[in-house]
Amino acid sequence: VFVDDHLLEKVLELNAKGEKRLIKTWSRRSTIVPEMVGHTIAVYNGKQHVPVYITENMVGHKLGEFAP
């Protein structure tokens, strides 16, 4: 499973602090992992960042699938 390192670091850091804030990313190719559930990730679609709230059903899919 591929997840960009910088994105995973941000998610794990927020989980350690117990925070839930918006994470901006250009990494549409990253796979959604269970650690991301409950976070809102702003995924770049080529024009703007689209906020995507991550749920359990999204695990295993790519971030780009949810930012048309």
Rank of each mutant, 00 (worst) to 15 (best):
E13M: 05
W26V: 07
Y53P: 12
R28P: 04
E9C: 15
V43G: 00
N45L: 07
R29L: 14
K10T: 15
E9I: 13
G18R: 08
K17M: 12
N45R: 09
V43S: 01
H61I: 09
I23V: 08
L63D: 00
T25K: 02
L12D: 04
V1E: 15
Q48N: 12
A42C: 05
T31G: 11
N45Q: 08
Y53M: 10
I32M: 03
Y44E: 03
H49I: 03
E35A: 13
V50C: 14
T40N: 09
D5T: 15
T31P: 03
D5Q: 15
I32Q: 00
N45H: 09
A67S: 14
F2S: 08
R29N: 09
H49N: 05
A42I: 03
R21E: 14
M58Y: 10
H6T: 14
F2A: 07
V37I: 14
V33Y: 04
E9T: 15
T31Q: 09
V11M: 03
W26R: 10
G38L: 07
K20W: 04
A16G: 09
H61Q: 12
K62T: 12
R28T: 08
I54T: 02
T55N: 14
G46M: 09
P34C: 15
N57P: 11
T31L: 05
E19T: 09
G46E: 07
G64E: 08
R29D: 11
T40G: 05
V1W: 05
W26L: 09
F66T: 03
A16L: 11
M58H: 13
K62H: 08
R21S: 11
S30R: 02
I23P: 01
V59L: 10
E35H: 09
K47Q: 10
D5K: 15
L14E: 02
H39Q: 03
R28Y: 07
T40Q: 14
I32D: 00
Y44R: 05
K47E: 08
K47T: 11
H6E: 14
I41H: 00
V1K: 12
F2Q: 05
N57H: 11
L22R: 07
N15Q: 04
K20D: 02
Q48I: 09
R29M: 12
V11L: 06
K24A: 07
M36V: 01
K10G: 05
E56K: 09
F2Y: 11
K17P: 01
E13A: 12
L12T: 08
N45E: 09
N57F: 06
N15M: 03
Q48C: 15
S30M: 03
A42N: 04
H61L: 14
A16W: 06
T31A: 14
G38N: 09
